[in-house]
Simulated scan of single mutants.
Amino acid sequence: MQFTYDTDMFVKTFESEFTWLNGFMRNVRRFGNRTAVIDPARNIKWTYTELNTAANKFANAMKADGVKKGDVVFMQLFNSTQFLLGYISPQKLGAIGNPVNFNLSPGETAEIIGHNKPTVYVYDTEILDTVVKALEITSHTPKVIIAVNNSGKEIELP
């Protein structure tokens, strides 16, 4: 195919520099004080700067737990601000975010955990029964398991 312009800059930019995280950080720099997230269930608004600060805290906590580049962060979360943090934070470490549907059965969840071998498993406490059963039957146990409780109910973890 022949082009009427030099494609080198386009290819270089989009194949090496154009990442989702770079786009997010651009928004943090340009629109830091603007609203990035509204969580109506919890009546929370975060600016880009606040979202980035929270993502940095989660990334640093995972790093302190030994999460590194190439590790898998498995997330089974409802649509929430924690899902966003689970999406953004691993990218800051070079880790691989692995979101999965929260409606999966314990067997399906266990199969994915066994296949992807996550270092971190982040889940919503409302699917605790699924999580417990999946962890009982999977061939792999994540090093770090994090429960997210947005329900406001007291939860007894195993």
Rank of each mutant, 00 (worst) to 15 (best):
K133F: 05
V73D: 09
I44R: 14
R29Q: 15
D71I: 01
R30D: 15
V37F: 07
K153L: 13
T119C: 12
A54V: 04
M62V: 01
F83P: 00
G107L: 07
I88G: 07
V131A: 13
R30P: 11
G94P: 10
E111W: 09
N56H: 09
V37H: 07
E108C: 03
S80E: 08
A59C: 06
V148H: 00
P118Y: 03
K57E: 10
S139F: 00
A134L: 09
A55K: 04
I44F: 03
E154N: 09
K57C: 10
P118Q: 03
S89F: 10
V73N: 05
P142E: 03
L84G: 12
I137M: 15
K57T: 08
T138Y: 08
D71P: 03
G152I: 07
E50T: 03
L51H: 00
A95Y: 12
T130P: 06
R30G: 08
G107S: 14
V120L: 09
E50D: 09
S151P: 05
R29T: 12
T138C: 10
V122H: 02
E126F: 04
F58T: 07
V100A: 10
N79Y: 01
T47I: 11
L77V: 06
P106I: 11
K143W: 09
A64M: 01
P99S: 08
I44N: 06
F102W: 10
Y87E: 10
N150H: 11
V73T: 08
E50S: 01
Q82I: 00
T49Y: 02
L128A: 11
T53M: 12
D65C: 13
Y48V: 13
T138Q: 10
N56T: 02
F31H: 15
P40S: 06
Y87V: 02
K68L: 13
L85A: 08
A64P: 03
G97W: 07
D129I: 04
I44M: 10
F102S: 14
K133C: 00
I145N: 13
S105Q: 01
I137H: 07
A54C: 06
D129G: 05
G97E: 11
F58V: 10
E111Q: 15
N98A: 13
P142C: 03
M75D: 11
R29H: 15
D124F: 08
L128Y: 07
K69V: 05
V131C: 12
F78I: 11
E136H: 14
N60V: 02
V132P: 01
G86Y: 09
G94R: 10
F74I: 12
K68N: 13
I88L: 13
T53Y: 00
F58K: 10
T119M: 15
T141W: 02
L84R: 08
V72W: 05
L84H: 15
G86R: 01
A36F: 05
N33I: 02
P106V: 05
K133G: 01
K68A: 13
D124T: 12
R29A: 15
V148Q: 01
N79P: 08
P90Y: 06
A64Q: 14
G114R: 05
